[in-house]
């Protein structure tokens, strides 16, 4: 016999899916959003995103090699790149480089690797990095550059985001709402904000791609968006002069980016469809509550991180429907 026969248990075939496939799939889905951000923020978007990716990959490599002392390095599986891109997308395009690196260190070092690396983290690393920066450096993190200053980076002129205007309205300055961009502009991405979050249409394109490639299921994004729409709609019906209409909530801030790309992070989201819907409803609800009544204008990151923490609990109590359960009664 030429070679030894291999003995292994069934199944003997595999659908050839891999971690890389999924991670790079998400990256491809992020391309439209990145193109819009280049168009809107120019150079700044490029610098911030690339710095963030490079820093995340470097920290992942360094920690695997020097602290874990694992032989096989995992930087090529795409998860660090994805964390880098998502972190960058959640930052303003005029953020200084040293802050980005600090955020990447927190995202990869604290939120991901200190729990054991890919698959073990409790919190979404990119969001943890972003929230760390937001709490520690609120000034830099909330000064948003005006759109279409293609060559300016840290010296870009800043302005208020739609969300900040909404917040002012809730706080009593109803005139602030007059400065809001039109909802079509917000849908297309012509408004200030974090790099990747501005264009709802580009993010929805990515969503469609991921659904088509079966990278994610519809449950989390749809339940978040529906919840936000319903809750924000109720407030709007209650007082249309203080609260903006629900589509503004949907197209503003990190809601689309969060619902489609951050909340659906495999590691930190629930495992069953039922659980995913509960998780999505929780995020949607918390987001609106924070946006309207919290100290910060944006609540998406906090809402996702809070629900991340609940994920193990949801997993424990939301079991899939077992085959034959219905008949048993």
């Amino acid at each position: 016999m030429a070679n030894k026969l291999t003995l292994s248990l069934s199944p003997h075939v595999h659908n050839n899916d891999s971690i890389q496939n999924n991670m790079y799939g998400v990256l491809i889905a992020l391309i439209p959003a990145f193109l819009v951000s280049l168009f809107v923020f120019g150079l700044g978007a490029l610098i911030v995103t690339l710095t963030s990716v490079a820093a995340c990959v470097f920290f992942e490599w360094a920690i695997t090699k020097f602290i874990f002392k694992r032989e096989k390095n995992t930087i090529l599986d795409g998860s660090a790149i994805l964390t880098g891109v998502l972190l960058g997308f959640n930052l303003p395009s005029n953020l200084p480089i040293w802050l980005i690196i600090l955020g990447a260190l927190f995202a990869i070092g604290v939120a991901k690797m200190s729990f054991g690396g890919l698959g073990c983290n409790i919190l979404n690393p990119a969001l943890a990095g972003r929230v760390f920066l937001l709490i520690s450096y609120p000034v830099q993190m909330t000064s948003w550059p005006q759109i279409q200053q293609f060559t300016n980076y840290v010296d870009a002129e800043t302005t208020a985001t739609p969300l900040a205007l909404m917040k002012q309205a809730v706080k009593g300055n109803a005139d602030a709402l007059n400065d809001l961009p039109s909802s079509l502009d917000m849908f297309l991405g012509m408004n200030p904000g974090s790099i990747g979050e501005i264009s709802a249409i580009a993010l929805l394109l990515g969503f469609a791609y991921m659904l088509w490639k079966k990278i994610i299921t519809w449950h989390i994004p749809v339940s978040i968006i529906a919840t936000v729409f319903v809750v924000a709609g109720l407030f709007y019906l209650y007082d249309p002069y203080t609260f903006v209409s629900p589509e503004y909530h949907l197209f503003s801030g990190g809601l689309m980016l969060g619902a489609i790309f951050m909340a659906t992070d495999y590691v930190t989201s629930p495992m069953t469809h039922k659980g995913m819907i509960i998780y999505g409803i929780g995020i949607g609800f918390l987001t609106i509550i924070i946006r309207l009544f919290g100290a910060y204008p944006e609540g998406m990151s906090f809402a996702i991180l809070i629900m991340n923490v609940f994920t193990p609990l949801i997993n424990t109590y939301c079991k899939p429907k077992r085959f034959g359960e219905v008949v048993k009664k």
């Binding site: 595999h14 998860s79 698959g119 930190t268």
Partner: peptide
């Protein structure tokens, strides 16, 4: 080529196994 299994990597909790299980298990 077909007969060797690929190397095991950490579970990324993607829930694809849960969706695929015809018996509704995890």
């Amino acid at each position: 080529k077909e007969s060797k299994r690929a190397e095991e990597q950490p579970c990324i909790r993607c829930a694809k196994c849960v969706s695929a299980c015809p018996m509704g298990l995890e």
